[in-house]
Amino acid sequence: MKKQRAFLKWAGGKYSLVEDIKRHLPAAEVLVEPFVGAGSIFLNADYERYILADINPDLINLYNLLKTDPVMYISEARRWFIPDNNRKDFYLSTRKAFNESDDILFRSLAFLYMNRFGFNGLCRYNKKGGFNVPFGSYKKPYFPEAELEFFAEKAKKAEFVCVNYRDSFAMAPQGAVIYCDPPYAPLSTTANFTSYAGGGFSLDDQARLADVAEKTALERDIPVLISNHDTALTRRLYHGAKLNVVKVKRTISRNGAGRNKVDELLALFSPSE
């Protein structure tokens, strides 16, 4: 089966790891994702239904709009992808309007536009909650029409919720499996560690997530798979899990020459037999 791409560009997206992650995801009726991001695992998995969460309301509002009214959303979004909008001044004025608006349709359309016309598909907010990714200067940004249509069709089986990971764990029913793709632990204690949706994901959060995952597996019989960097810290945090190492290409320095293989850890917390 052909791998499906997400319609959003996403730092740390799991497209390249889909096969490895699917191989380690237990069979279940429901897949719960507390950190859905661009949704590469959801798009390529085969479950009866999905509970997909993220703490970024812009992301979840966009997904719910696309699910409920895909024809309207896609036709409105298409209008943004014209050469005249591929200018720094238009991008910056859109970003300013986005940060001042609370209109869900406008924000959802501008979010996709900024994702494709902004720098590297980053999704980043300042401390006040303002989107602050710079203009991307691409020749011709791609309008992901087929990817939007595929997502909208598959979204019929999904529930999208804007909650934190603890609340999404609580929503997991019996017969579910949980896949977590949290913001990754730093490769070193000096690595700068930016957040995706305001309020960063600290080392304490990494530890709490591991704790909730282990308890959920042991006390509720719901298996939990977590992906993260393979470091001494993450191995300590996931000591109660079955660990699998995956090699993946990832840019870890600002110049292209810094593309090194960084090991990824897939930690599976299973119910006790």
Rank of each mutant, 00 (worst) to 15 (best):
F151L: 13
A6K: 05
G121E: 10
K215S: 14
G258S: 10
T194K: 12
R124Q: 14
P183F: 11
P34R: 02
C162W: 00
R236G: 07
I252G: 04
P271I: 05
V245I: 14
A191P: 11
R49F: 09
F35K: 04
N86A: 05
A185L: 10
K96R: 13
S272T: 15
E48I: 00
S168P: 12
Q206D: 00
M114P: 03
R208T: 05
F7D: 00
E214A: 14
V133N: 02
D58V: 00
T194N: 14
I51Y: 03
R236K: 12
G12D: 02
A45Y: 06
A28F: 02
L243Q: 12
D46G: 15
S202Q: 07
W80E: 02
A97M: 13
M114A: 01
L148K: 04
K2A: 05
L43P: 09
Y47R: 06
H229C: 08
I226H: 10
V177E: 04
G37L: 07
T216D: 01
V177W: 07
Y179A: 01
E145M: 04
W80L: 14
K139A: 12
N255Y: 11
G258M: 10
A27M: 13
R236C: 04
T94V: 15
V224T: 00
Q206V: 03
Y138A: 09
K128D: 06
K67F: 12
L237W: 02
R235T: 10
Y113N: 00
M114R: 00
L243P: 04
A210Y: 06
Y91L: 06
D205F: 09
